[in-house]
Design a protein around this nucleic acid. Structure first.
Lengths: 250, 250
DNA sequence: TACCGATGTTTCACAGAGTGAAACCAAGGA
DNA sequence: TCCTTGGTTTCACTCTGTGAAACATCGGTA
């Protein structure tokens, strides 16, 4: 209540409506209304507006709403302006060298987002959709983003997050320090059963942490030994990628 | 004025702000305000809202606004729910068969949008970003979408569009009829110098036009003769893709 | 057939939310 | 130093967004 609000309520609500589509792709009007806690008629007007501008549309068959093509159009531009395209070449090289899926994660608030990925070409492989939003405490690249990122932000995050539990936080911080010393992190069936990953930080030329480079695959191919053996290749690729990036912020 | 408006003005305006980013990726506040014709302070509040929800962010270096990662996240879901993924396999097969870039276009209002694409692997190739929005009258797949689409919608479009000019409309319609008879369309340096394309319609099982399948490349590789020769392969692929789609709408 | 419940749509009166003018800052450049 | 150019904040007014409730449209059920 005492919060200063210099934002527009109607817009905020409309964006919440859109964000419904990050979990499930088909939504009916009433479902959405319940989810965001607004009156049907309000949501109805919002969907009409979103539809008019092409951000959502009504699936003729199911009579439910879906994300429209404007989102696709915008995302094309979001990605075009992204340094991540510069790194694609290096990512493909690393994929070919190790034969596993390679992805790039950046921190966004209290999550990490996969901003770029090239898939392994093996039959059994991890699928890695670009745009996926994942928790920021668990998984190899999460630990990289925390271990090499700003210490203040890290502590703030750990204070408000439910995992690791308060009593385990010291152990977790210790693990992060180890990672910082080693220069890379690994995870074995940590976030997802059957999957493992190696991750190393990418710093831009001004030394700022830009992203975590991650190589991931099925845990039977990526054993602890194998990962230790391959870590230098990942770190080297991350270093080269950093060189491709400009200075502060770009 | 006498228009019925059952939409929310604030939301409408906010979406317009976002749509700025379909032309140019960096925008300052005042630029946007001018572009959408609103007061600085209004736009300021909107950007604050959009930023809070992660739809845009402030580039630290340039101090300008850019599209945020939420867009990427949403687009991942927009695409996941899309029948276009089912067609990827067939598209790759066609790409490997012909060695050229293959894309998929659907009609959206008075434009067409590239909803899926697989790139040629040749050194000289057309680049085809997914999400691109293109005019609906010019280019092979445009003609396919018009020739095989709803006649009423087609006439409505031609009435309000500036190209082809009114006097050329009969000739254009004749060309569309030819295309409808042949089952495919070609274009040679029509929309873009140095580029050519073959396109065929994809109908779902209920016979409804779903998209235009297009094979495009440099005009020296895709001569008129070559295109005529390859058209059957494109039509056949389009037919098979149609079989993969469900009935009405899906 | 009549009835029901669950969807989406429209109407309407009220209050509070969004609006833009104007004032205020901050940072460069001349 | 004074401008200019961008962004930020304040504030009073009124217009806009709001949700209750009524309405419409289905399928299913008895």
């Amino acid at each position: 209540m005492e919060e200063e609000k210099r934002t527009i309520r109607a817009v905020e609500r409309a964006l919440d409506v859109m964000l419904c589509f990050t979990t499930g792709s088909d939504w009916g009007l009433t479902e959405i209304a319940q989810r965001v806690g607004l009156h049907k008629s309000t949501v109805h007007r919002m969907l009409a507006t979103l539809e008019q501008k092409g951000f959502v549309f009504r699936d003729e068959a199911t009579e439910k709403y879906r994300l429209g093509l404007r989102i696709l159009e915008l995302s094309a531009h979001a990605r075009a302006s992204d340094p991540a395209v510069v790194l694609l070449g290096e990512m493909e090289r690393l994929r070919d060298q190790l034969g596993e899926t390679v992805s790039l994660y950046v921190r966004d608030r209290n999550d990490r987002v996969r901003i770029q990925a090239v898939q392994s070409e093996q039959a059994v492989r991890r699928v890695a959709p670009v745009g996926a939003r994942l928790p920021l405490t668990v998984g190899a690249s999460s630990k990289v983003l925390l271990a090499f990122g700003d210490a203040g932000e890290r502590d703030a995050l750990l204070a408000e997050v439910s995992w690791p539990a308060p009593k385990d936080r010291d152990a977790y911080l210790e693990q992060l320090q180890e990672i910082a010393a080693l220069g890379y992190a690994t995870s074995f069936e940590e976030r997802e059963a059957g999957a493992a990953a190696i991750s190393a930080p990418i710093f831009d030329r001004s030394g700022k942490l830009y992203a975590a480079l991650s190589v991931s695959g099925p845990s039977n191919r990526l054993t602890a030994d194998i990962m230790r053996e391959r870590a230098p290749a990942v770190m080297e690729a991350a270093r080269r990628m950093g060189m491709l990036l400009g200075g502060t912020g770009v």
